[in-house]
Design a protein around this nucleic acid. Structure first.
Lengths: 195, 195
DNA sequence: CAGTGATACTGAACTTTTTGAATAGGTGCG
DNA sequence: CGCACCTATTCAAAAAGTTCAGTATCACTG
């Protein structure tokens, strides 16, 4: 149900094609509501049928024709009504990696290290991408200036949420690597786990 | 596909009924792989058919008969094989609340405050529950002692991930409340947003 | 001028997840 | 004794999401 509103919220940034949205949903918004291109195209179709967005066909010089979608007044109103409602669904995190970590104590510790390193690298990469988006949004101003002066603050604040999420991810990985290191070379000399 | 492994990982803690798992998936594991009771019962059926878990029927004195499930050797092996593989799916966060925040700049600021306060309260509540689980796991030891000495460290480490997630959530809410407060009483006197 | 890859979109089958309800024994309250 | 609520599970159906496989246009490379 919420994909609908995620799409409407994305269109607050201005008109976009399905293809463009599928890019956006992979970097910024992917943060809190991922969707595949197929989902987006279907959703855009439905929203247009409902009159919440409108499409305009744009033939291009050097590329295939695209359809740009933008919010209608009805769409804006519907989104605002949704945003003002209390939140029904709690946050759902689905993380295959953490299932593996839950079961880590049966796996070769070097294998676990490798998985955690991989995860850390990934989190840092995402963090760097978010930081670049942030620089672009701030455009030279400090956070305080931007938040006082900007017309819209929602996109910046949700970006901050993504940044702190990935930063904590990376920190957690580092903590786990430390723990694994200490278990490999234990200061306690019982030798229990070294069969 | 991963629910299967989430269930196997949950059974590492010992045998459990579908009902008990549905409780666990609502507090600790809900963290990174939520599931409804219906999903769990179906998954348990499938896993038993595959021979990865086995069921034993336990008639009870004052309660309905329950079926307790436990890992088989095949189940343990399958879980270990899964846990050692590189992670295919990146973390997926689905958060209706953050969609609302993305669209906050069209909503009555007092309404937004209320939503953020609600979210903060919820995060702090979850954090408190996690902290209690942590106390129980540590059982008087320090984190360092526990991590060096414990047989299994996976459950503790994933719990830490949950704790830092909710702590950051609460912090983010507090930051947003500050920002909203400053926009309500701006030091910059243009009065632009006070129409 | 064939191959590769980006843009731009569509279709159909499939799996997973959610929702709502039904069943059924037992406990505790007034 | 009736009602609400907890344990424990199952059924059915809808909604949401994933996967795989296309179509088609154009740009760039060798």
């Amino acid at each position: 149900m919420s994909l609908k509103y995620a799409v409407l919220a994305a269109l607050l940034e201005g008109e976009a094609s399905g293809y463009e949205l599928s890019k956006v949903f992979d970097v910024s918004l992917a943060n809190f509501w991922p969707a595949t291109p197929q989902q987006l195209y279907r959703e855009l179709e439905r929203l247009a049928d409902e009159g919440l967005i409108e499409a305009r066909t744009v033939p291009q010089e050097r590329r295939p024709t695209k359809r740009l979608f933008s919010l209608t007044e009805a769409g804006r109103d519907r989104l605002s009504a949704f945003a003002a409602e209390p939140t029904r669904r709690p946050t759902a995190v689905r993380d295959e990696f953490l299932i593996k970590m839950q079961a880590m104590d049966g796996i070769d510790p070097e294998r676990v290290r490798a998985l955690v390193e991989e995860r850390r690298t990934w989190a840092l990469g995402k963090l760097a991408r978010y930081e670049r988006v942030r620089e672009r949004l701030l455009d030279g101003r400090t956070e305080e200036e931007h938040l006082r002066e900007a017309g819209r603050v929602g996109p910046y604040l949700t970006l901050l949420a993504g940044i702190s999420f990935e930063r904590e991810n990376a920190r957690w990985c580092e903590h786990v690597l430390t723990v694994l290191g200490e278990r490999r070379a234990p200061t306690d000399p019982t030798g229990q786990a070294l069969g």
